[in-house]
Amino acid sequence: MKEMPKIDKADEMSETKIAASKVQVYYGTTHAIKDVDINIQPRSVTAFIGPSGCGKSTFLRTINRMNDTIDICRVEGEILIDGEDIYDPKVDPVQLRAKVGMVFQKPNPFPKSIYDNVAYGPRIHGLAKNKSELDEIVASSLQKAGLWEEAKDRLDEPGTGMSGGQQQRLCIARAIAVNPEVILMDEPCSALDPIATAKVEELIDELRENFTIVIVTHSMQQAARVSQRTAFFHLGILVEEGPTQDIFTNPQDKRTQDYITGRFG
């Protein structure tokens, strides 16, 4: 594993948004994630790559405790966000998830209007004091998700009636509306066509300005296009992590090299 640049304690706090150490995940008796240590920097895009079943999605879901919804799943180790352990008993996963939003593999808009889809998060978290504030949040979220022009005249129509790419951007808008600090994206483009994918990738690049983004992707090209740092997972182990450029041009580990040259995966 590549050494992180040596920095002092205060600096580390500002430079590291998410710090995971010795993370283990078990599904029943299966040891799905083994000893993962990783630091994720704020306001950047970090990509998790690796062959299917390598645990990259599982690890992603530990960051906002989505694994809590699976009965047999158990997480050990420590994940710090802004220096606070998210698995601390004092932490409410509901509050955590407001801070760490998530976008899923398949677009999953609720069977409600476009407006209500975006307004859902702000409503449950009480982010708007009145209707006009809510309207503003909805509009700005849709704008930031690049969906405003397409959606502004059909806010009352069901979100499920949009095209796949629009649905996924709606889901991103929905996640942004809660004003999270981190957005986790689990293969957000795998169900989209190339043009929609390009739009979403463009969006991710824009969002980097304000959010810490972690994206799981099975496409190495996508990782190369959108991310600043890349982590390679294999069989539940974090094999290598570093600046995207380095990982793709000069991998340190034999397995990383084999994977990016297409020898397995």
Partner: peptide, 10 residues
Amino acid sequence: MSDTTLSSPA
């Protein structure tokens, strides 16, 4: 909901 039209956020 009848119809929601939002102005572009200022």
